[in-house]
Write a protein that binds this DNA or RNA. Structure first.
Lengths: 261, 261
DNA sequence: CGCATATTCCATAGATCTATGGATAACACA
DNA sequence: TGTGTTATCCATAGATCTATGGAATATGCG
């Protein structure tokens, strides 16, 4: 049981760390980890999102659980997986950062997409904080509704990419859109921006996604959209957009914001 | 060449990231990475330090190089490897942090050692900054001399663990020692502290190691020790210790410090 | 209780990774 | 140019990992 020599202790330490390494050695597991950093999900939802068979997805999740990077919660017949704490998401972010910094291929792929999506600069967090406060822009969360509900930028409007075209008319053409998604490696926001520009709207991507926002210590709201049930009623949505611009981190004027912190 | 569907692009991204994951899936590669974050080293030095055969070590280093995490420099007949930038070391630190946060085993091993080394609290960076400035403590770098030269805390004295017992008399028994090494997972400083306490000295470990210090943006000095050739001349060393306490981040009163920033 | 759903467990064939010895390449020095 | 040193390349046997279909579990619902 005990390690005899310091060398063995040291080897033991690195072996433990390698358990974490093994988790991120497989592309699909990284993808799963990224998804879990957006919020909890059931096994089959994860399998569907990543294109894995349920049995394979489950196997991957077991590996991740044995490394203590994810935790589970059972609800009736299904099991929800979630990232085991902020540290895990920070690690995932660090991995993505390192990838962008060191692997030209990553940047290349991102640029291939970037050009379609809009070669323009992304919006920085600070710019967003200033402009959204004054109502100049509307913040659009284009992730699936479940992820929006699990946590979103206070004041952001939920409009999943898949519903974007159908609900385009809900967006005031006069107000610029700032779209965000799961993070710098996520394609949802860039695709949304590409679509919006195609339709002649002014739109840009936020520089970062939800995990980075959260990790920066900024407030996160959760629960369904305040005014309407996510793109179910176009009529009411228009109102929400206005609010989105003005209630931005103001002083907790909506139920959403009060519970945010 | 081009990815046709968004799904393929996404898969491509995660495949790239997995290249980094593969690097840290093997214990020895993590160990190598940690060493390289202390400074550059030749292949056989790395092999010796990790207990690998040169040919195996080289193979591991190739993997790391292909993932762009390390870079090389040739000098005559030997090749020096180094971490490819601060981002890489930050990632290594994030991995270690995650390991300590999530893997009870890591903490367990550290505690097994910690009890021998001194169950007392480690010294925080802030405490060190205050107490060293006023000369209350001497800061001891117990890593191998090469690593000290590649970068150390300004004002720290180099006394590699292996030479500690032989040069114990150079340390003023009245002044408390704060030892540091490669990081929270490194055993050098704890071992040094254990030895020192065995001899009746007051000694504690610094909470962090060189990489964390550097990543915090604190000044780093490099080159050989200012006053003497590292434990070669005990007589002069005693003077150095005093300096170590007083010149601490004062206002660049030594050559060492002037070049530090 | 029996059936349906969501997961996990298991065995296995195929793919990938690791350690190692021997050969090769690059370089320094006579 | 010959010799010694340092590092990389190569082929391979052994170990590990992955995907998958089928069986086993756990839970919910009549």
């Amino acid at each position: 049981m005990e390690y005899a020599t310091p060398d063995q202790q040291r080897a033991g330490l690195y072996e433990q760390l390698a358990r974490i390494g093994k988790v991120v050695m497989h592309p699909k597991r990284i993808e799963l980890l990224d998804l879990l950093c957006q919020g909890e999900r059931s096994v089959d939802a994860l399998a569907a999102a990543t294109g894995l068979k349920v049995t394979t997805a489950s196997a991957h999740l077991q590996v991740m659980r044995q490394s203590r990077l994810v935790e589970t919660r059972r609800e009736g017949t299904r099991v929800y997986y979630r990232a085991a704490g902020e540290t895990v998401c920070r690690f995932a972010t660090a991995l993505a950062d390192l990838g962008r910094a060191r692997l030209a291929e990553v940047d290349q792929i991102l640029r291939d997409i970037g050009t379609d999506a809009g070669g323009t600069e992304r919006v920085t967090r600070n710019e967003l904080l200033h402009r959204a406060r004054s109502g100049e822009v509307v913040v659009l969360d284009v992730r699936p509704a479940e992820e929006y509900e699990a946590g979103h930028i206070p004041g952001a409007v939920s409009l999943p990419l898949e519903h974007l075209e159908a609900h385009l008319d809900e967006l005031d053409p006069m107000i610029e859109v700032v779209a965000y998604c799961r993070g710098p490696l996520c394609l949802l926001a860039p695709q949304a921006v590409a679509t919006l520009r195609d339709k002649g709207r002014r739109a840009r991507c936020l520089e970062e996604g939800m995990p980075e926002w959260r990790q920066a210590g900024l407030p996160v709201a959760s629960g369904p959209e305040a005014t309407s049930g996510q793109a179910a009623d176009p009529g009411r949505d228009r109102g929400a957009h206005h609010v989105a611009g003005s209630m931005w981190l103001s002083s907790g004027t909506t139920p959403e914001e009060r519970t945010a912190l």
